[in-house]
Nucleic acid binder design. Sequence first.
RNA 1: GCGCCCGUAGCUCAGUGGAUUAGAGCAGCAGACUUCGGAUCUGCCGGUCGGGGGUUCGAAUCCCUCCGGGCGCGCCA
Length: 546
Amino acid sequence: MLFDYVRTVLGTALERLGLNADVTVELPRHASHGDAATTVALQLARTLGKSPRSVAQDIVAAMDYDPARISSVEIAGPGFINLRFGPAYYADLFERIRAQGERFGYTERYARKRANVEYVSANPTGPLHPGHGRNIALGDSIARLLEAVGYRVTREYYFNNAGRQMQNLARSIYARYRQLLGEPDYPFDEDNGYRGEYILDIARELIAEYGDSLREETDANLAICRTKGEQWCFASIRSTLERLGVRHDVYFNEHSLYTDGHIARVVEDLRARGLVYEHDGATWIATTKLGLEQDRVIIKSSGEPTYRLPDIAYHRIKLERGDDLIVDVFGADHIATIQEVLAAVRALGYDTSPIKVVLHQMVTFMKDGVPYKLSKRSGEQYTLDDLIDEVGPDVVRFFFVMRAAETQLVFDLNLAREQSEVNPVFYLQYAHARICSVFANAREHGIEWENTGAMVLDHPAEHALVKMLAQFPSTVERAAEQLAPSIVADFLHSVAEAFHTFYHECRILGADRDDVRSTRLALAAATQTVLRNGLHLLGVRAPERM
RNA sequence: GCGCCCGUAGCUCAGUGGAUUAGAGCAGCAGACUUCGGAUCUGCCGGUCGGGGGUUCGAAUCCCUCCGGGCGCGCCA
């Protein structure tokens, strides 16, 4: 949007010269180099066998433009073409932002495309821990970003409520149940058991519900413990997600892969391709034939599949659904697994290119300058809920997406708890609240203004703000394409900065002319929209007052 | 040993192959309109972009190599 007119002018000039090239226009790093710059002459010089500067001269000579929109064109350095916007350019940008109003920033580029985003996918064996926060915030913001560029998005949660983990959960609950019933020495499996405080809570609920009628150690009673545990854990997980504004459309149960025959089909199909063999009583997949380091077990000698097998079946199903884009949000510890799974699915004859894996690195929590241990081993767990209690949902969501997924994030608990200007979330929210306050003031003083066209933009701070706002749609697209919410977080900081500077230098309500006041109010309204829409993409609230 | 990720200011991080001068925030220092929210704004201080080669008109960015850190490499998930 920012460079639409510039691109058109340059494109026409190239056409006139019989040249063919992608016109990339960028914002120069230094304001002294103008408002827009292109390196197209440098790129063309080689194939044309001419010097970049002379190519640039030809292009400039062939440019036909409105001098009110482009006030200067110059060739600089080795062959850059630098342009400066004129008043009409700003007026035009501003008008387009104003006309789009609340829809500004959302595009239709990927309309009619379907995307599936899988995230969280924690098994129901306990409350979410703080480390899950990054996966949740990333996954949900990615889903929001994809929606913003037109995708129809399904949010999916994959879980396993069978298998060894759930047996351990049932046994843990049962042991605590017996202990609470007056047998403190009843054995608790310290190695495999879940030692969290919440197990006791579940056991207490069982006593309230069943009294001591589950005392006998039968499969049926353990099954009751298991079911109770699963329900309790899922309720806990969902309530935490709810607090963060996250809701999934599909909960995919791993167990259905067995009952629907998908698991058996995967084994048969892999076997038909000569990729399966038996060894030491187990069934193996020959991943070495697929270019990986070593072969892996897919069915243990006990007859139980390993997690790999359902993962392969699950990804095959995802591909068969025909979505245009399939996003897996995983922690860095899944890297080996996902490589194996994708290699196996490819070996089954599928094109895995719709699958994009967002691997995020681990989070280190810091408190008072030292790493804060959030041990799962200790009986007392620090949960994601505790973190939300401590710093609030907005800070949790923002902190987990403000850095690129591939960085090893440091979550500074002191900074997060700080309710002041050092906290980067408040800088953005304050800008929004400030704008709301200006409008509240306008209403209070009975200031009438019309958000119509024909406005005046004179001040450099106004120009800087308009230029910033005009980049919102392309920024959202770039963030969506790169599956990188941190791009939006950075951008919003720049918007807030441009607004605060504008606010400081330009009186809005106190402007000395009515048309200037109306322009500035409209500019504030547009900034408000960008901040609100942008914060929404990150799942952070845009408060009217703080 | 192998695979993936990272290494940029004291700290946390941006940086889309581009420009004599690599940018923010925090920390530190110095300032700001008696009027719309000072949770703000303006300056200053601070860098061998981990080291070394290469590709290119041009490299923090791409390639190679070495060093350092993280995560994996289970008949756990």
